[in-house]
Protein backbone atom coordinates (compact mmCIF):
# COMPACT_ATOMS: atom_id res chain seq x y z
CA UNK A 1 0.00 0.00 0.00
CA UNK A 2 1.22 3.51 -0.76
CA UNK A 3 1.81 6.24 1.76
CA UNK A 4 -0.22 9.45 1.82
CA UNK A 5 3.08 11.15 2.59
CA UNK A 6 6.59 9.74 2.25
CA UNK A 7 8.02 9.60 4.85
CA UNK A 8 5.01 9.06 7.08
CA UNK A 9 5.95 10.43 10.50
CA UNK A 10 4.34 8.95 13.60
CA UNK A 11 5.06 10.04 17.18
CA UNK A 12 4.10 7.84 20.12
CA UNK A 13 4.37 9.80 23.37
CA UNK A 14 3.68 9.50 27.06
CA UNK A 15 5.38 9.24 30.43
CA UNK A 16 8.31 6.95 31.25
CA UNK A 17 6.98 3.56 32.29
CA UNK A 18 3.82 3.63 30.13
CA UNK A 19 5.28 1.30 27.51
CA UNK A 20 6.26 3.63 24.70
CA UNK A 21 9.16 1.48 23.53
CA UNK A 22 7.11 -1.68 23.16
CA UNK A 23 4.40 0.24 21.30
CA UNK A 24 6.81 1.70 18.77
CA UNK A 25 8.55 -1.64 18.34
CA UNK A 26 5.21 -3.31 17.52
CA UNK A 27 4.36 -0.64 14.94
CA UNK A 28 7.89 -0.76 13.49
CA UNK A 29 8.00 -4.55 13.23
CA UNK A 30 4.61 -4.60 11.52
CA UNK A 31 5.83 -1.89 9.14
CA UNK A 32 8.95 -3.87 8.17
CA UNK A 33 6.78 -6.96 7.64
CA UNK A 34 4.61 -4.81 5.35
CA UNK A 35 7.71 -3.94 3.36
CA UNK A 36 8.43 -0.41 4.55
CA UNK A 37 11.83 1.08 5.24
CA UNK A 38 11.27 1.88 8.90
CA UNK A 39 13.27 3.90 11.39
CA UNK A 40 12.51 4.43 15.07
CA UNK A 41 14.08 6.94 17.46
CA UNK A 42 13.55 6.16 21.15
CA UNK A 43 13.94 7.61 24.60
CA UNK A 44 15.55 5.20 27.05
CA UNK A 45 17.35 5.53 30.36
CA UNK A 46 16.99 8.50 32.67
CA UNK A 47 13.85 9.86 31.02
CA UNK A 48 12.16 6.58 31.74
CA UNK A 49 12.07 7.68 35.37
CA UNK A 50 8.79 9.57 35.24
CA UNK A 51 9.91 11.96 32.51
CA UNK A 52 8.36 12.82 29.15
CA UNK A 53 9.09 10.15 26.56
CA UNK A 54 8.44 9.89 22.86
CA UNK A 55 9.22 7.50 20.06
CA UNK A 56 9.53 8.70 16.50
CA UNK A 57 8.44 6.10 13.93
CA UNK A 58 9.12 6.87 10.27
CA UNK A 59 7.89 4.83 7.30
CA UNK A 60 9.09 5.20 3.73
CA UNK A 61 9.09 3.38 0.41
CA UNK A 62 12.20 5.25 -0.72
CA UNK A 63 14.75 5.95 1.98
CA UNK A 64 15.92 4.75 5.39
CA UNK A 65 15.16 8.02 7.19
CA UNK A 66 16.88 9.21 10.35
CA UNK A 67 15.52 8.46 13.82
CA UNK A 68 14.28 12.00 14.49
CA UNK A 69 11.31 13.76 12.89
CA UNK A 70 11.80 17.43 11.98
CA UNK A 71 9.84 19.95 14.06
CA UNK A 72 6.31 20.46 12.79
CA UNK A 73 6.30 17.32 10.65
CA UNK A 74 4.36 14.71 12.61
CA UNK A 75 1.56 13.18 10.54
CA UNK A 76 0.15 11.13 13.40
CA UNK A 77 0.54 11.54 17.17
CA UNK A 78 -0.48 8.65 19.41
CA UNK A 79 -0.48 9.87 23.01
CA UNK A 80 -0.74 7.86 26.22
CA UNK A 81 -1.11 11.00 28.36
CA UNK A 82 -2.97 14.25 27.50
CA UNK A 83 -0.41 16.78 28.71
CA UNK A 84 2.38 14.98 26.86
CA UNK A 85 0.34 15.07 23.65
CA UNK A 86 -0.02 18.83 23.96
CA UNK A 87 3.70 19.20 24.69
CA UNK A 88 4.59 17.16 21.59
CA UNK A 89 1.87 18.70 19.39
CA UNK A 90 3.15 22.23 19.93
CA UNK A 91 6.60 21.23 18.66
CA UNK A 92 5.84 18.57 16.06
CA UNK A 93 2.19 19.16 15.09
CA UNK A 94 0.64 20.93 12.11
CA UNK A 95 -2.82 21.39 10.62
CA UNK A 96 -2.66 18.00 8.88
CA UNK A 97 -1.72 16.10 12.03
CA UNK A 98 -4.06 13.38 13.29
CA UNK A 99 -4.09 12.83 17.05
CA UNK A 100 -5.17 9.73 18.97
CA UNK A 101 -5.14 10.41 22.70
CA UNK A 102 -5.65 8.45 25.92
CA UNK A 103 -7.60 10.76 28.23
CA UNK A 104 -6.13 9.59 31.55
CA UNK A 105 -3.76 12.10 33.17
CA UNK A 106 -0.48 11.18 34.86
CA UNK A 107 0.43 14.01 37.20
CA UNK A 108 3.92 15.56 37.03
CA UNK A 109 5.78 16.02 40.31
CA UNK A 110 5.40 19.81 40.10
CA UNK A 111 1.59 19.57 39.98
CA UNK A 112 1.55 17.16 42.95
CA UNK A 113 3.65 19.38 45.17
CA UNK A 114 1.59 22.40 44.15
CA UNK A 115 4.14 24.36 42.11
CA UNK A 116 2.06 24.19 38.96
CA UNK A 117 -1.45 23.20 37.95
CA UNK A 118 -2.49 20.33 35.69
CA UNK A 119 -4.78 21.89 33.06
CA UNK A 120 -8.36 20.73 32.46
CA UNK A 121 -8.50 17.95 29.84
CA UNK A 122 -11.07 19.98 27.89
CA UNK A 123 -8.58 22.86 27.62
CA UNK A 124 -5.93 20.51 26.26
CA UNK A 125 -8.32 19.03 23.71
CA UNK A 126 -9.49 22.50 22.68
CA UNK A 127 -6.00 23.74 21.99
CA UNK A 128 -5.01 20.69 19.95
CA UNK A 129 -8.38 20.57 18.19
CA UNK A 130 -8.05 24.19 17.11
CA UNK A 131 -5.20 23.24 14.74
CA UNK A 132 -5.10 19.46 14.24
CA UNK A 133 -6.87 17.74 11.35
CA UNK A 134 -8.60 15.38 13.78
CA UNK A 135 -8.45 14.45 17.46
CA UNK A 136 -9.75 11.10 18.65
CA UNK A 137 -10.05 10.48 22.37
CA UNK A 138 -10.05 7.00 23.87
CA UNK A 139 -10.31 5.97 27.53
CA UNK A 140 -7.55 3.48 26.89
CA UNK A 141 -6.42 2.91 30.48
CA UNK A 142 -9.99 2.23 31.64
CA UNK A 143 -10.61 -0.13 28.72
CA UNK A 144 -7.33 -1.96 29.37
CA UNK A 145 -8.19 -2.27 33.07
CA UNK A 146 -11.57 -3.77 32.17
CA UNK A 147 -9.82 -6.21 29.83
CA UNK A 148 -7.45 -7.36 32.58
CA UNK A 149 -4.60 -4.94 33.21
CA UNK A 150 -3.79 -1.25 32.85
CA UNK A 151 -0.27 -2.34 31.81
CA UNK A 152 -1.64 -3.26 28.38
CA UNK A 153 -2.82 0.32 27.66
CA UNK A 154 0.07 0.70 25.21
CA UNK A 155 -1.00 -2.27 23.09
CA UNK A 156 -4.58 -1.01 23.09
CA UNK A 157 -3.35 2.32 21.74
CA UNK A 158 -1.39 0.49 19.02
CA UNK A 159 -4.70 -1.17 18.16
CA UNK A 160 -6.30 2.27 17.85
CA UNK A 161 -3.55 3.32 15.44
CA UNK A 162 -3.86 0.06 13.45
CA UNK A 163 -7.63 0.51 13.16
CA UNK A 164 -7.47 4.21 12.36
CA UNK A 165 -6.72 3.83 8.68
CA UNK A 166 -3.93 6.39 9.06
CA UNK A 167 -1.10 3.91 8.52
CA UNK A 168 -1.27 1.59 5.50
CA UNK A 169 -0.26 -1.58 7.34
CA UNK A 170 -2.63 -4.53 7.27
CA UNK A 171 -3.88 -5.53 10.73
CA UNK A 172 -2.60 -9.10 10.19
CA UNK A 173 0.98 -7.82 10.36
CA UNK A 174 0.41 -6.44 13.87
CA UNK A 175 -1.28 -9.68 14.89
CA UNK A 176 1.73 -11.67 13.65
CA UNK A 177 4.11 -9.44 15.60
CA UNK A 178 2.07 -9.90 18.79
CA UNK A 179 2.35 -13.68 18.35
CA UNK A 180 6.13 -13.42 17.92
CA UNK A 181 6.49 -11.13 20.91
CA UNK A 182 4.20 -12.75 23.54
CA UNK A 183 3.19 -16.15 24.83
CA UNK A 184 0.41 -17.62 26.96
CA UNK A 185 -1.73 -15.34 29.11
CA UNK A 186 0.16 -12.19 28.10
CA UNK A 187 -0.48 -12.98 24.43
CA UNK A 188 -4.19 -13.52 25.08
CA UNK A 189 -4.52 -10.25 26.98
CA UNK A 190 -2.61 -8.28 24.36
CA UNK A 191 -4.58 -9.82 21.49
CA UNK A 192 -7.78 -8.88 23.29
CA UNK A 193 -6.82 -5.26 23.99
CA UNK A 194 -5.32 -4.83 20.52
CA UNK A 195 -8.66 -5.87 19.00
CA UNK A 196 -10.47 -3.47 21.38
CA UNK A 197 -8.22 -0.72 20.08
CA UNK A 198 -8.86 -1.64 16.45
CA UNK A 199 -12.60 -1.42 17.12
CA UNK A 200 -12.40 1.72 19.27
CA UNK A 201 -13.33 4.12 16.51
CA UNK A 202 -15.91 2.82 14.04
CA UNK A 203 -14.75 3.71 10.54
CA UNK A 204 -16.82 6.32 8.76
Amino acid sequence: MALARDPLNIIICGVGGQGNILASELVGSAAVAAGFLTTIGETYGASQRGGSVMSHVRLSRQLQYGPLIPKGEADVIVGFEPLEVLRVFRIYGNSDTHVILNSRPNYPLGTLIGESKYPEIAQILNEIGRVAARVQVVEATELAKQAGSAVSTNVLMVGCLAGSGLVPIDVVHYEEVLKQRFEGAALELNQKVFEMGVQAFPQV
Binding site: G51, L86, R90, N94, G110
Partner: peptide
Protein backbone atom coordinates in the same frame (compact mmCIF):
# COMPACT_ATOMS: atom_id res chain seq x y z
CA UNK B 1 10.78 24.64 4.44
CA UNK B 2 8.50 24.08 7.41
CA UNK B 3 5.10 22.50 7.94
CA UNK B 4 4.72 23.79 11.48
CA UNK B 5 1.68 26.08 11.61
CA UNK B 6 0.92 25.69 15.32
CA UNK B 7 0.75 29.16 16.86
CA UNK B 8 0.89 29.33 20.64
CA UNK B 9 -0.55 32.38 22.36
CA UNK B 10 1.35 32.74 25.64
CA UNK B 11 -1.45 34.96 27.02
CA UNK B 12 -4.37 32.62 26.40
CA UNK B 13 -2.92 29.15 25.93
CA UNK B 14 -2.01 26.63 28.59
CA UNK B 15 1.25 26.98 30.48
CA UNK B 16 2.43 23.36 30.22
CA UNK B 17 3.79 22.19 33.57
CA UNK B 18 7.29 20.71 33.37
CA UNK B 19 7.61 16.99 33.93
CA UNK B 20 10.60 16.69 36.22
CA UNK B 21 12.40 13.38 36.33
CA UNK B 22 11.60 11.66 39.57
CA UNK B 23 12.02 8.36 41.36
CA UNK B 24 9.53 5.66 40.38
Amino acid sequence: PSRNDVVVDPEKDIAIPARDLTFC
